Computed example of a mutant assay.
Amino acid sequence: MSALDDLLAVMARLRDPAEGCPWDLQQTFASIVPHTLEEAYEVADAIERDDREDMRDELGDLLFQVVFYARLGEEEGSFDFDSIAAGVRDKLIRRHPHIFGEAGPITAEGQRASWEAIKADERLARTSGTDRPGALDSVPLALPALTRSRKLQGRAARVGFEWPDPRQVIDKVREELDELDEALADEPRDQAHVAEEIGDLLLACVNLARQAGVDAEHALRAGNRKFERRFRGLEAVLAEAGETLEEASFERLEAAYQTAKAREGEEPTGT
């Protein structure tokens, strides 16, 4: 037996009605979803840390999630692991006609366009009657908000709803900032209005990132790592001076932050 066959057998044993694990027997498709999302993020974290050993382990944990879903599907007779594998195999062949079909050579950009066109045809084929699917249909609600925003705006762009010049998106960001500034100045402040304007601002920023060829989710994750690194540097600066976070004023914290930035070889300009 292969390692995959062994894993499928282990999963079957865990779900055995008589001798299985009580926790595993309680699980449903819905109850596993949070664990699947957590494992996917742990894979991403291992990749960002460039830790190959952790990558292997976390990918194994993510594979186990697929095996778990497959077992649940097999038990109810809807699908099994083989049908999952066969489905993705067929999809990859169908979406790469330049490799497995008669289409000629293609560029990476051309492949992306071809892939999306084939996906659109597949969505249309799945619809019943004469209703044509909307351009924004099937973008998963469970995606992180930044990722979903990028996908929604990318779908809209493919049908022509797109600023022709990225500088126009910068103007839109400035416009949204002005509207947020006005909302913050209202007396009494309407917090729901403020939240709405912040949402509009974030949407515009995601669009700007997309137009610039940057994934907003990845960019923010990188920004988070940079902030965390520099804040730890701030703590080190204070510790060297015998100071604590609790006793330091904001001005002192800002100065320590700029020192931490300077130690990275960057100009200490702003936060």
Results as ranks from 00 to 15, higher is better:
Ala145Glu: 14
Ala145Tyr: 06
Leu146Gln: 06
Gly134Phe: 11
Ile118Phe: 01
Trp115Lys: 10
Pro140Ser: 01
Ile118Pro: 04
Ala157Asp: 01
Ala145His: 12
Ala113Ser: 12
Ala117Phe: 02
Gly134Tyr: 06
Thr130Gly: 09
Arg123Glu: 14
Arg132Tyr: 10
Asp137Gln: 10
Glu122His: 01
Leu136Ala: 14
Arg148His: 01
Leu124Gln: 09
Trp163Pro: 00
Thr127Val: 03
Asp137Trp: 09
Gly129His: 02
Arg155Met: 15
Ala156Pro: 08
Ser138Lys: 14
Leu146Ile: 09
Thr130Glu: 10
Pro164Thr: 15
Arg123Asp: 11
Gly154Met: 03
Thr127His: 15
Arg112Asn: 04
Ala142Ser: 14
Leu141Gln: 14
Arg126Asp: 07
Ala157Gln: 02
Arg126Ile: 02
Thr130Val: 13
Asp137Tyr: 06
Val159Arg: 04
Ala135Ser: 08
Gly160Gln: 02
Glu122Lys: 03
Arg123Pro: 01
Asp121Thr: 00
Arg148Asp: 00
Glu162Tyr: 04
Ser138Ala: 15
Ile118Thr: 03
Pro133Arg: 06
Ala145Lys: 10
Glu122Asn: 10
Ile118Leu: 07
Val159Tyr: 10
Ile118Met: 03
Arg132Asp: 09
Leu136Tyr: 13
Ile118Gly: 07
Ala120Thr: 01
Val159Asn: 05
Arg148Tyr: 07
Lys119Ala: 10
Ala142Leu: 13
Arg158Lys: 05
Ser114Met: 12
Trp115Pro: 04
Pro140Asp: 03
Leu152Asp: 08
Arg155Thr: 11
Ala135Glu: 15
Ala142Thr: 09
Leu143Phe: 05
Lys119Cys: 05
Thr147Ile: 10
Pro133Ser: 04
Pro133Gly: 03
Lys151Asp: 11
Arg112Tyr: 06
Gln153Ile: 04
Pro133His: 05
Thr147Tyr: 05
Gly134Leu: 13
Gln153Thr: 07
Thr130Asp: 12
Leu146His: 02
Arg158Pro: 04
Leu143Ala: 04
Ala125Arg: 00
Thr127Phe: 09
Ala117Trp: 04
Ser138Met: 12
Pro144Ser: 00
Arg158Ala: 13
Arg123Asn: 11
Thr127Ile: 02
Trp115Ser: 11
Ile118Trp: 04
Asp121Lys: 11
Thr147Ala: 14
Arg126Ala: 15
Val159Glu: 02
Trp163Ile: 08
Ala135Val: 13
Ala135Arg: 14
Leu136Lys: 14
Thr127Arg: 14
Ala142Val: 07
Asp131Met: 09
Arg155Phe: 01
Thr130Cys: 10
Gly160Thr: 09
Gly129Phe: 07
Phe161Gln: 12
Ala135Met: 07
Ala117Arg: 05
Ser128Ala: 13
Ala157Phe: 01
Arg155Ala: 15
Thr130Arg: 12
Leu141Asp: 15
Arg123Val: 15
Leu143Thr: 00
Thr127Ala: 06
Lys151Ser: 14
Ser114Gln: 10
Arg148Thr: 02
Arg126Phe: 00
Arg112Lys: 05
Glu122Tyr: 03
Arg155Lys: 15
Ala120Lys: 00
Gly160Phe: 04
Ala157Tyr: 08
Ala125Glu: 00
Pro144Asp: 08
Arg132His: 03
Ala142Met: 00
Arg132Ser: 10
Ser114Glu: 13
Arg148Gln: 06
Asp131Tyr: 07
Asp137Phe: 05
